[in-house]
Design a protein around this nucleic acid. Structure first.
Length: 272
DNA sequence: CTGTTAACCTGAGTGC
DNA sequence: TGCACTCAGGTTAACA
Protein backbone atom coordinates (compact mmCIF):
# COMPACT_ATOMS: atom_id res chain seq x y z
CA UNK A 1 0.00 0.00 0.00
CA UNK A 2 2.17 2.80 1.17
CA UNK A 3 4.85 4.98 -0.31
CA UNK A 4 5.54 8.47 0.98
CA UNK A 5 2.31 10.07 -0.32
CA UNK A 6 0.13 7.36 1.20
CA UNK A 7 1.95 7.54 4.53
CA UNK A 8 1.66 11.34 4.52
CA UNK A 9 -2.05 11.01 3.73
CA UNK A 10 -2.46 8.70 6.72
CA UNK A 11 -0.50 11.13 8.90
CA UNK A 12 -2.71 14.03 7.93
CA UNK A 13 -5.87 12.00 8.36
CA UNK A 14 -4.83 10.66 11.73
CA UNK A 15 -3.59 13.90 13.26
CA UNK A 16 -6.95 15.58 14.06
CA UNK A 17 -8.15 12.43 15.81
CA UNK A 18 -4.97 11.76 17.79
CA UNK A 19 -3.25 15.05 18.50
CA UNK A 20 -3.72 16.21 22.12
CA UNK A 21 -5.84 13.14 22.86
CA UNK A 22 -5.08 10.72 25.62
CA UNK A 23 -4.71 7.01 24.96
CA UNK A 24 -7.05 5.32 27.44
CA UNK A 25 -5.95 1.79 26.60
CA UNK A 26 -4.27 -0.32 23.97
CA UNK A 27 -5.04 -3.88 22.89
CA UNK A 28 -2.63 -6.08 20.97
CA UNK A 29 -4.29 -9.14 19.45
CA UNK A 30 -1.39 -10.16 17.23
CA UNK A 31 2.10 -9.02 18.18
CA UNK A 32 3.84 -10.82 15.32
CA UNK A 33 4.44 -8.01 12.86
CA UNK A 34 7.71 -7.39 11.01
CA UNK A 35 9.21 -7.21 14.48
CA UNK A 36 7.24 -8.33 17.53
CA UNK A 37 5.28 -5.65 19.32
CA UNK A 38 6.75 -5.03 22.76
CA UNK A 39 4.69 -6.93 25.33
CA UNK A 40 4.72 -3.89 27.64
CA UNK A 41 3.47 -1.52 24.94
CA UNK A 42 -0.15 -1.34 26.17
CA UNK A 43 0.99 -0.56 29.71
CA UNK A 44 3.40 2.09 28.46
CA UNK A 45 0.73 3.71 26.26
CA UNK A 46 -2.09 3.79 28.79
CA UNK A 47 -2.70 7.32 30.02
CA UNK A 48 -0.23 8.96 27.62
CA UNK A 49 -1.21 11.97 25.55
CA UNK A 50 -0.29 12.33 21.87
CA UNK A 51 1.68 15.49 21.16
CA UNK A 52 1.86 15.11 17.40
CA UNK A 53 2.50 12.70 14.54
CA UNK A 54 5.67 13.09 12.48
CA UNK A 55 6.75 11.30 9.34
CA UNK A 56 10.22 10.20 8.28
CA UNK A 57 10.21 8.55 4.88
CA UNK A 58 7.54 5.87 5.10
CA UNK A 59 7.62 5.75 8.90
CA UNK A 60 5.08 7.50 11.11
CA UNK A 61 6.34 8.67 14.49
CA UNK A 62 3.76 9.23 17.21
CA UNK A 63 5.28 11.58 19.78
CA UNK A 64 3.90 11.19 23.30
CA UNK A 65 3.77 13.68 26.19
CA UNK A 66 6.36 11.55 28.01
CA UNK A 67 8.82 12.14 25.20
CA UNK A 68 8.61 8.49 24.22
CA UNK A 69 7.64 7.74 20.66
CA UNK A 70 5.90 4.96 18.77
CA UNK A 71 7.17 4.16 15.29
CA UNK A 72 4.54 2.88 12.87
CA UNK A 73 5.18 1.32 9.49
CA UNK A 74 2.51 0.05 7.14
CA UNK A 75 4.61 -2.48 5.26
CA UNK A 76 2.86 -3.59 2.08
CA UNK A 77 -0.67 -4.10 3.33
CA UNK A 78 -0.98 -2.07 6.52
CA UNK A 79 -3.89 0.30 7.18
CA UNK A 80 -4.66 2.56 10.08
CA UNK A 81 -8.24 3.66 10.56
CA UNK A 82 -9.98 5.71 13.22
CA UNK A 83 -13.31 4.08 13.97
CA UNK A 84 -16.28 4.20 16.30
CA UNK A 85 -16.07 1.45 18.92
CA UNK A 86 -19.18 -0.21 17.49
CA UNK A 87 -17.37 -1.20 14.29
CA UNK A 88 -16.91 -4.98 14.40
CA UNK A 89 -13.48 -6.55 14.34
CA UNK A 90 -12.21 -7.99 11.10
CA UNK A 91 -9.54 -10.53 10.44
CA UNK A 92 -6.04 -8.99 10.73
CA UNK A 93 -7.13 -6.17 13.06
CA UNK A 94 -3.96 -6.56 15.12
CA UNK A 95 -3.91 -3.52 17.41
CA UNK A 96 -6.41 -1.02 18.85
CA UNK A 97 -5.65 2.21 20.66
CA UNK A 98 -8.72 3.42 22.51
CA UNK A 99 -8.69 7.20 22.72
CA UNK A 100 -10.28 9.37 25.39
CA UNK A 101 -12.62 10.61 22.67
CA UNK A 102 -14.13 7.13 22.63
CA UNK A 103 -12.85 6.45 19.13
CA UNK A 104 -10.45 3.68 18.29
CA UNK A 105 -7.30 3.82 16.20
CA UNK A 106 -7.11 0.39 14.59
CA UNK A 107 -4.04 -1.13 12.95
CA UNK A 108 -4.93 -3.70 10.27
CA UNK A 109 -2.28 -5.58 8.31
CA UNK A 110 -2.95 -8.90 6.53
CA UNK A 111 0.63 -9.56 5.48
CA UNK A 112 2.17 -8.34 8.73
CA UNK A 113 5.13 -6.61 7.09
CA UNK A 114 4.24 -3.53 9.10
CA UNK A 115 5.63 -2.52 12.47
CA UNK A 116 4.72 -0.83 15.77
CA UNK A 117 7.86 -0.11 17.76
CA UNK A 118 8.52 1.59 21.07
CA UNK A 119 11.14 4.36 20.96
CA UNK A 120 12.05 5.46 24.47
CA UNK A 121 12.57 9.16 25.20
CA UNK A 122 16.07 8.40 26.46
CA UNK A 123 17.21 7.14 23.05
CA UNK A 124 18.09 10.03 20.78
CA UNK A 125 18.37 7.87 17.70
CA UNK A 126 16.48 4.79 16.61
CA UNK A 127 18.36 2.04 14.81
CA UNK A 128 15.65 1.78 12.15
CA UNK A 129 15.88 5.44 11.21
CA UNK A 130 19.65 5.65 11.25
CA UNK A 131 21.35 5.84 7.89
CA UNK A 132 18.21 6.92 6.06
CA UNK A 133 18.65 9.18 3.07
CA UNK A 134 17.28 12.73 2.94
CA UNK A 135 13.61 13.59 2.60
CA UNK A 136 12.85 14.24 -1.06
CA UNK A 137 11.41 17.68 -0.22
CA UNK A 138 14.47 18.77 1.74
CA UNK A 139 17.19 21.05 0.43
CA UNK A 140 19.69 18.21 0.79
CA UNK A 141 18.00 16.36 -2.07
CA UNK A 142 18.72 17.71 -5.53
CA UNK A 143 20.36 16.82 -8.81
CA UNK A 144 23.88 17.46 -7.55
CA UNK A 145 23.28 15.11 -4.64
CA UNK A 146 21.99 12.36 -6.93
CA UNK A 147 24.86 12.90 -9.35
CA UNK A 148 27.46 12.69 -6.60
CA UNK A 149 26.08 9.53 -5.02
CA UNK A 150 25.48 7.76 -8.30
CA UNK A 151 29.09 7.97 -9.54
CA UNK A 152 30.58 4.54 -10.03
CA UNK A 153 27.30 2.76 -9.40
CA UNK A 154 26.37 -0.02 -11.78
CA UNK A 155 22.95 -0.76 -10.28
CA UNK A 156 19.83 0.14 -12.24
CA UNK A 157 18.77 3.72 -11.62
CA UNK A 158 15.36 2.49 -10.49
CA UNK A 159 16.89 0.37 -7.72
CA UNK A 160 19.12 3.32 -6.88
CA UNK A 161 16.29 5.79 -6.29
CA UNK A 162 14.24 3.19 -4.41
CA UNK A 163 17.13 2.66 -1.99
CA UNK A 164 16.13 4.38 1.25
CA UNK A 165 19.77 5.14 2.04
CA UNK A 166 19.89 7.32 -1.08
CA UNK A 167 16.53 9.06 -0.71
CA UNK A 168 13.43 8.07 1.23
CA UNK A 169 9.84 7.84 0.10
CA UNK A 170 9.96 6.76 -3.53
CA UNK A 171 8.71 3.19 -3.78
CA UNK A 172 7.82 1.10 -6.78
CA UNK A 173 5.02 3.27 -8.16
CA UNK A 174 6.57 6.70 -7.77
CA UNK A 175 10.09 5.65 -8.77
CA UNK A 176 8.55 4.20 -11.94
CA UNK A 177 6.53 7.33 -12.63
CA UNK A 178 9.38 9.75 -11.89
CA UNK A 179 11.64 7.91 -14.33
CA UNK A 180 8.99 8.22 -17.01
CA UNK A 181 8.64 11.95 -16.41
CA UNK A 182 12.42 12.30 -16.52
CA UNK A 183 12.59 10.27 -19.77
CA UNK A 184 15.10 7.88 -18.20
CA UNK A 185 14.91 4.14 -18.78
CA UNK A 186 14.74 2.34 -15.42
CA UNK A 187 17.44 -0.15 -16.41
CA UNK A 188 20.11 2.53 -16.99
CA UNK A 189 23.12 2.17 -14.70
CA UNK A 190 22.91 4.91 -12.09
CA UNK A 191 26.55 5.75 -12.75
CA UNK A 192 25.79 6.56 -16.38
CA UNK A 193 23.35 9.35 -15.63
CA UNK A 194 24.49 12.78 -16.70
CA UNK A 195 24.26 15.83 -14.49
CA UNK A 196 21.23 16.92 -16.48
CA UNK A 197 19.60 13.51 -16.04
CA UNK A 198 20.10 13.75 -12.28
CA UNK A 199 18.67 17.26 -12.14
CA UNK A 200 15.54 16.17 -14.03
CA UNK A 201 15.19 13.01 -11.99
CA UNK A 202 15.43 14.76 -8.63
CA UNK A 203 12.93 17.38 -9.75
CA UNK A 204 10.48 14.77 -11.02
CA UNK A 205 10.76 12.61 -7.91
CA UNK A 206 9.80 15.67 -5.86
CA UNK A 207 7.08 16.66 -8.28
CA UNK A 208 5.39 13.28 -8.56
CA UNK A 209 5.45 12.76 -4.78
CA UNK A 210 4.04 16.24 -4.16
CA UNK A 211 1.23 15.75 -6.68
CA UNK A 212 0.36 12.39 -5.17
CA UNK A 213 0.24 13.88 -1.66
CA UNK A 214 -2.18 16.54 -2.91
CA UNK A 215 -4.41 13.84 -4.42
CA UNK A 216 -4.41 11.74 -1.26
CA UNK A 217 -2.13 9.03 -2.61
CA UNK A 218 -2.74 6.16 -4.99
CA UNK A 219 -5.44 3.58 -4.37
CA UNK A 220 -4.74 0.41 -6.34
CA UNK A 221 -6.28 -2.24 -4.17
CA UNK A 222 -7.31 -1.15 -0.74
CA UNK A 223 -5.36 1.88 0.36
CA UNK A 224 -7.40 4.26 2.47
CA UNK A 225 -6.68 7.23 4.67
CA UNK A 226 -7.68 7.34 8.34
CA UNK A 227 -11.22 8.28 7.35
CA UNK A 228 -11.46 5.39 4.89
CA UNK A 229 -11.30 7.61 1.80
CA UNK A 230 -9.25 6.43 -1.17
CA UNK A 231 -6.63 8.39 -3.07
CA UNK A 232 -6.94 9.70 -6.59
CA UNK A 233 -3.41 9.62 -7.97
CA UNK A 234 -4.01 6.34 -9.82
CA UNK A 235 -5.77 8.42 -12.48
CA UNK A 236 -2.52 10.28 -13.05
CA UNK A 237 -0.33 7.20 -13.51
CA UNK A 238 1.52 7.38 -16.82
CA UNK A 239 3.15 3.95 -16.94
CA UNK A 240 2.71 2.01 -13.71
CA UNK A 241 0.47 -1.00 -14.30
CA UNK A 242 -0.07 -0.05 -17.96
CA UNK A 243 1.78 -2.97 -19.58
CA UNK A 244 0.85 -3.17 -23.28
CA UNK A 245 -1.18 0.03 -23.25
CA UNK A 246 -0.17 3.01 -25.39
CA UNK A 247 2.10 5.70 -23.96
CA UNK A 248 0.06 8.84 -23.32
CA UNK A 249 2.81 10.91 -24.96
CA UNK A 250 3.90 8.91 -28.03
CA UNK A 251 1.44 5.96 -28.19
CA UNK A 252 4.23 3.38 -28.17
CA UNK A 253 3.35 0.34 -26.06
CA UNK A 254 4.31 0.48 -22.39
CA UNK A 255 6.57 -2.40 -21.48
CA UNK A 256 6.78 -4.36 -18.22
CA UNK A 257 10.08 -5.76 -17.00
CA UNK A 258 11.38 -6.92 -13.62
CA UNK A 259 14.15 -5.01 -11.86
CA UNK A 260 15.28 -6.10 -8.42
CA UNK A 261 12.31 -8.44 -8.13
CA UNK A 262 9.88 -5.56 -8.67
CA UNK A 263 7.67 -4.88 -11.66
CA UNK A 264 8.82 -1.92 -13.69
CA UNK A 265 7.07 -0.17 -16.53
CA UNK A 266 8.49 2.18 -19.12
CA UNK A 267 7.85 3.63 -22.55
CA UNK A 268 10.24 2.09 -25.06
CA UNK A 269 10.32 5.31 -27.04
CA UNK A 270 10.18 8.13 -24.49
CA UNK A 271 12.62 6.62 -22.02
CA UNK A 272 16.26 6.09 -22.91
C1' DC B 1 32.01 -1.22 0.05
C1' DT B 2 28.35 -2.69 -3.93
C1' DG B 3 24.99 -5.65 -5.89
C1' DT B 4 21.80 -9.52 -6.06
C1' DT B 5 18.65 -12.79 -4.03
C1' DA B 6 15.74 -15.00 -0.72
C1' DA B 7 12.76 -14.26 2.87
C1' DC B 8 9.08 -12.48 5.79
C1' DC B 9 3.12 -13.29 5.09
C1' DT B 10 -1.69 -13.39 3.32
C1' DG B 11 -5.11 -12.63 -0.19
C1' DA B 12 -6.76 -11.67 -4.83
C1' DG B 13 -6.83 -12.83 -9.39
C1' DT B 14 -6.20 -16.02 -13.43
C1' DG B 15 -6.20 -20.15 -16.05
C1' DC B 16 -7.20 -24.97 -16.38
C1' DT C 1 -15.47 -25.61 -7.14
C1' DG C 2 -10.92 -26.62 -6.63
C1' DC C 3 -6.22 -26.38 -7.48
C1' DA C 4 -1.88 -24.37 -9.01
C1' DC C 5 0.23 -20.52 -9.91
C1' DT C 6 1.43 -15.44 -10.11
C1' DC C 7 1.37 -11.09 -8.25
C1' DA C 8 1.09 -7.27 -4.72
C1' DG C 9 2.48 -0.06 -2.97
C1' DG C 10 8.43 -2.72 1.70
C1' DT C 11 12.48 -3.85 3.92
C1' DT C 12 16.19 -6.62 5.85
C1' DA C 13 19.48 -10.45 6.13
C1' DA C 14 22.53 -13.23 3.88
C1' DC C 15 25.42 -13.96 0.37
C1' DA C 16 28.90 -13.32 -3.74
Amino acid sequence: MPELPEVETVRRGLTPYLQHRRIAAATVREPRLRWPILAELPAKLAGRRVERIDRRGKYLIVVLDSGDRVILHLGMSGRILVLEPSVPLRKHDHVDWTLDSGRIMRFHDPRRFGAMLWWPAAETEHLLLRGMGPEPFSDAFDGDYLFRLSRGRSAAVKSFVMDGRIVVGAGNIYATEALFRASIRPTRAAGKLTRADCARLAAHIREVLAEAVELGGTTLRDFAGADGASGYFQQALSVYGRDGEPCRVCASPIRRIVIGQRSSFYCTRCQR
